[in-house]
């Protein structure tokens, strides 16, 4: 079954007196359990595509489907519900809520989902241990390094086992060892739980872990390569 389907997406931004085509009649299909890296030079459209898939940004033209459901015509509330239940997000920066501890940040989505307190507490501690943050559960973001914060964000994105995880430059602020650890965690989730990953990155290490690399340029797909995972 198809996890993500984009049909003829167009998105144009106005920058000064210039129109920038972030997506230019782009179509893409990603099957369930896919592990896709969207790669492009800066401004190539990968983040715009990721945002359109996640319902964070509406395309000017075209259709977006998640698990067969068209989402580009949903209301704000419906999109929020979709993101809450089906999609895990990892952003490049400003990932955490500053007034919550690491554990509370991880619990946040589950709490909004209505997961019982005991259940979400246990899951949060387990996932934090899994991303190597045991002992840091009660720290607030300001008391953690950039890498640690990013791992908390990843833990939050995957803790409720969403069918689809969208990650925008997840390794941008991480050292190579932490990046590898994170990508191995993604790979394990992909292989053992069938979670679909769509990662926007130009990091060669990330590309090395992906099963499929979609190269973009000026809002178009210029190359679509299937490869064996590292």
């Amino acid at each position: 079954m198809t996890a993500v389907r984009c049909v003829d997406l167009c998105k144009t931004y106005r920058q000064g007196d210039q129109d920038i085509k972030a997506l230019d009649h782009l179509s893409l299909e990603i099957g369930e359990g896919g592990f896709v890296c969207l790669s492009s030079p800066s401004g190539g459209g990968k983040t715009t595509l990721l945002n359109a898939i996640g319902g964070l940004d509406k395309p000017d033209q075209g259709e977006v489907y998640i698990a067969g459901q068209r989402i580009d015509n949903l209301s704000k509330g419906e999109l929020a519900e979709l993101r809450l239940r089906r999609i895990g997000f990892v952003f490049q920066a400003y990932n955490l809520i500053p007034v919550l501890t690491a554990r509370e940040n991880v619990e946040f989505v589950m709490q909004v989902q209505g997961v019982p307190a005991a259940d979400r507490g246990r899951k949060a501690l387990d996932i934090l241990a899994e991303v190597g943050l045991e002992g840091l559960e009660d720290r607030r973001p300001a008391e953690m390094s950039g890498g640690q914060q990013q791992r908390v964000a990843v833990a939050r994105a995957i803790v409720s086992r969403p069918a689809l995880v969208l990650a925008d430059e997840p390794t941008a602020n991480l050292d190579s060892k932490t990046s590898d650890g994170l990508m191995e965690l993604f790979t394990e989730l992909n292989e053992h739980h069938g979670t679909t990953f769509v990662i926007a990155s130009h990091d060669q290490r990330v590309m090395g872990y992906a099963k499929r690399i979609v190269r973009m340029l000026d809002g178009r797909i210029v190359d679509d390569i299937q490869q064996d995972a590292a």
């Binding site: 704000k76 509330g77 993101r83 239940r85």
Partner: peptide, 16 residues
């Protein structure tokens, strides 16, 4: 603003 954007992105509704 960014924090509010993050919460909306994670699935909080505007009403929240």
């Amino acid at each position: 603003v960014r924090e509010i954007g993050l919460m909306l992105a994670l699935g909080m509704k505007p009403g929240d």
